[in-house]
Simulated assay, not measured.
Amino acid sequence: MSDLTAERRRKGAAPTSPPAKRTHFSGRTRRDFFVFLAFALPNLALIAVFTYRPLFANLQYSFLDWTLGSPRARNIGFDNYATFFGSDDAARVLGTTAIFTVLTVGLSMVLGLLVALALNARVRGTTFARSAVFAPYVLSGVGVGLVWMFIFDPGYGALSWILRSFGARSPEWFNDPQLALTMVILVYVWKNLGYCAVVYLAGLQSLPSDIMEAAAIDGAGSARRFWSISLPLLSPTTFFLLITTILSSLQAFDLIRIMTPLGTGTSTLIYEAYLQAFGSYNRAGYSAAISVVLFVILLVITVVQLRFVERKVHYA
């Protein structure tokens, strides 16, 4: 017995009782929990119905031999995956997807950073220039594809007219597989360049000015300040853009569908899945298997970026 309790008993005071334990689920906590459910359940229900349910349904369809529109389907296990990876289509489609993703992501980020550096200058007209650069990103991909089809048309396109004025002949952009892929990559980079530029511009404007001024006072030139200070401090912005642009490029569909309807040289994974299901094949099960392959690639890339690339991000 402690000295304090003995002293209280000598003075006739009742010993203090231990503090009452708080209930694990008090009234306020219960009320907050129900408020959370009221706000979260509708969103969770929509995500479950329109995201996870189709995801698991597509996984189930990938194990079926099913022609689109047919009332019957036959379970064939992993035959769709074996057919895809055992055919020449796998190397062609995966190679096209890799080339398209690497070039569109790399060009969009590099050119976006250069444009952002130009737009960050304090000169007249930068507001109009920023709007003009970002405008293509918010335009419809279908509309952009139709306009650029007119530009690239070898017969009456604007580009062919310019080449003819110099005595040159317009290439067959739509018939040559390599030129078709180049054409789609150029248009995709043009359309999404403004997104990278605006995000990089926001990152540049958030850089601490005192560090840049101190480096300038110490004699560091503009190029040295960019490579040694600005670029490392922009690593969170670069990391964010790397994730978003890779995911967007792997899911690019509208420009490819409009500019090359047959997928001549431009059959990426997502477009090959479309052609197999809704083209002349109607192979819904085979298309679902290609979609699962795309999902696994997206998942692996995201996990690798979050697990390893983020270690080099400078957040301080």
Rank of each mutant, 00 (worst) to 15 (best):
S17M: 13
F278P: 00
R31Y: 12
T96Y: 00
P136Y: 13
N43R: 09
G221L: 06
F240I: 08
S222F: 04
K191Q: 15
Q60L: 10
R31L: 15
I246K: 00
Y137W: 14
M259G: 08
E213N: 12
T16I: 11
S70W: 05
F34G: 01
A197F: 00
P232K: 12
D79M: 07
D65T: 06
G263W: 01
P19T: 10
I47K: 00
V102N: 04
R307F: 04
Y61M: 07
A90Y: 09
A215C: 09
Q251G: 03
F239S: 12
A158G: 12
T245F: 03
N43G: 14
W190D: 11
L59T: 08
A252I: 04
P154R: 06
L181D: 08
I217Q: 07
G194L: 04
F240N: 02
V300I: 15
A223I: 14
Y61C: 00
D176W: 05
H24L: 14
F85H: 03
I301H: 01
V138P: 09
A98Q: 00
F34C: 03
G143N: 03
L186N: 04
D218L: 04
N58Y: 02
V133Y: 03
R224D: 12
S249F: 08
P177M: 07
L94N: 03
T97W: 09
D65V: 03
T51W: 11
F239A: 10
R283I: 01
R74A: 13
P15R: 10
A116W: 05
A20G: 08
L68K: 08
M183Y: 02
L64I: 02
W161L: 13
A45F: 13
